[in-house]
Structure formats: structure tokens, C-alpha cells
């Protein structure tokens, strides 16, 4: 009841502001009719969101509706820091590694680590109530481990499930989102990169579901994780560059891309 009133109020305010906007615009240019038609068309919220669903809730211009950027100073500092680290250290190292090792073996390594993350995917599928996806992930894990050289091949991923099954690529931050938890503020962590309060807790939780965490002693665990990241980066060089190079403000571009990507993941 209270909700519908709030929604009606919001609609009324929206309509009022739209008229104000028309009025203001009309001061500048006299072609009111044409502009009204344009407003109908161009400035109405999109009929479908990025995933093709009808959007719910009040439309926002940016990503404030997904997660506010409450600590821009902190975030921008670490963004710059990570950016420098990327260009000065990670990228050259990954490029050198890429020169030494051809793409095929690097893909196998990537598959191996992906296969190893099965516990994380499985648990999160269950937590999100995606039992079919959990089952498919399990069969893929068994298939790839037993007949795919311990996970070096991901042949079981090319086999289509008999029934359409949602993706099993799930993590804890996404699970929290599916449960209806809010994002909190947008946060950039040193070295880890873009996150939100919710995703940070998710990241911490997922840490305990990564088999590499339990390697002993600690430097083996660290080394394995670092190697996994390096190998993965060597396969994805250029993605970060495209996003930031095409941006007017790289910080905003990366933030929005992250938040929209995650929002889409939660909706899936």
C-alpha cells in the first residue's frame, strides 16, 4: 500500500519534471511539437535493460542506483595506483610470460585453475537455489577432471546440457545480491581493483572456497594465486586498455562497467 503511494508520488514528480524540462527547452528553441516527440523517444528510459528485461524501479542516468560512489577520494587514489601497477608491472610481466609460453598452454593453465574453482561455483549455485546449474557444474567438473587431463581441457563445457541451464559461473557477492542485499558503496581496493562493500564480503567468503587457499606453506598458496592471475591476465591483455582508452574519464568508465556487469550478473 505504502509502496504504491510512493510509486505514484514518484511518477507524479517525474511527470512534473518532464514538463519542466520541456518548458525550459522550449525557451531555447521554438519547435515544441518536435521536441515533445523527441522526448517521448530519446529521453524516456530504455524499454529493455542490458539483459533484455523490462527495467524496474526509477531510471537513473548513471550507476548511482546500483551503488553510490561515497568515497571517491579513496577510490580515485587506488584506481590511479592500480593503473600504474598495471602498466609498470603486471602488463609487462604478463606480456613477457606470453612471449615465452604460447597461447595454447596458457589456455590449459587457465582451464585448470577454472576447474579447480568448482567448489566455489557449486556452493554458490546451491545458495542461489540453482540446483540444475549446480548439477551441470558437478558433471563438468567430474568430466574435465577425469577425462580432460585433470582439468587442462574444458571439453565438458562444450557439451550442451539437455535442457537449457543458467550459467554456473557464480560467486558469493552475486549470491548476496540474489538474496536482496544492497551493494553498499562502490570501493576500489589496492591490487584487487573495483568492488563494492557487498562484493568485498563476497570476495572474503569465496576465499575460503578456493582450494589454493589451503596450500601449505602460505607462500605456495600465494604463489599459486599470483600465477593464476598472471596467466589469466596474459590472455586478456587489451581489455583494460580498450575500456580506459576510449573513455573521457577512465575512472568513471571502469566504475560503471564494473557496476553494470555485476548488476547484470545478479539479475541472471
Amino acid at each position: 500500500m505504502g509502496r504504491s503511494i510512493a510509486r505514484a508520488c514518484l511518477l507524479a514528480i517525474g511527470a512534473f519534471m518532464l514538463f519542466c524540462g520541456v518548458g525550459l527547452a522550449a525557451d531555447d528553441q521554438p519547435v515544441l511539437g518536435k521536441q515533445l516527440a523527441q522526448i517521448d523517444n530519446t529521453y524516456a528510459p530504455e524499454l529493455w535493460d542490458a539483459g533484455g528485461q523490462t527495467p524496474t524501479g526509477a531510471p537513473t542516468v548513471g550507476t548511482e542506483g546500483i551503488a553510490p560512489d561515497s568515497v571517491p577520494g579513496w577510490n580515485r587514489f587506488w584506481f590511479q595506483f592500480n593503473d600504474k601497477f598495471y602498466y609498470y608491472l603486471f602488463k609487462p610481466v604478463a606480456q613477457g610470460y606470453g612471449y615465452v609460453l604460447p597461447e595454447k598452454p596458457r589456455t590449459w593453465v587457465d582451464n585448470f585453475f577454472h576447474n579447480l574453482l568448482f567448489p566455489m561455483r557449486f556452493v554458490n549455485c546451491l545458495l542461489q537455489g540453482q540446483f540444475r546449474a549446480a548439477g551441470v557444474e558437478t558433471s563438468r567438473f567430474i568430466g574435465n577432471t577425469a577425462f580432460g587431463f585433470g582439468g587442462l581441457s574444458r571439453f565438458a563445457y562444450d557439451l550442451k546440457p539437455t535442457q537449457p541451464t543458467p550459467s554456473g559461473e557464480r560467486d558469493l557477492g552475486q549470491t548476496f545480491g540474489v538474496w536482496g542485499m544492497g551493494n553498499g558503496t562502490y570501493l576500489v581496493w589496492p591490487l584487487i581493483g573495483p568492488s563494492t562493500v557487498r562484493d568485498s564480503f563476497g570476495y572474503a567468503g569465496d576465499y575460503f572456497m578456493r582450494p589454493t587457499t589451503y596450500l601449505n606453506p602460505w607462500y605456495w598458496s600465494m604463489g599459486a594465486t599470483a600465477y593464476e592471475k598472471l596467466n589469466n591476465l596474459s590472455l586478456r591483455i587489451g581489455e583494460y586498455e580498450t575500456l580506459t582508452e576510449s573513455a573521457i574519464d577512465p575512472y568513471t568508465a571502469v566504475r560503471d562497467a564494473y557496476l553494470r556487469y555485476r548488476a547484470q550478473k545478479v539479475k541472471e
Binding site: A50, V61, G62, A247, I248, T252, A253, D256, R260
Partner: peptide, 8 residues
Amino acid sequence: EIYRSQFA
């Protein structure tokens, strides 16, 4: 959508 916030 990536350019919306930047333009705004």
C-alpha cells in the same frame, strides 16, 4: 550506458 555518467 558506459558514456552516460562520463557525459553527465
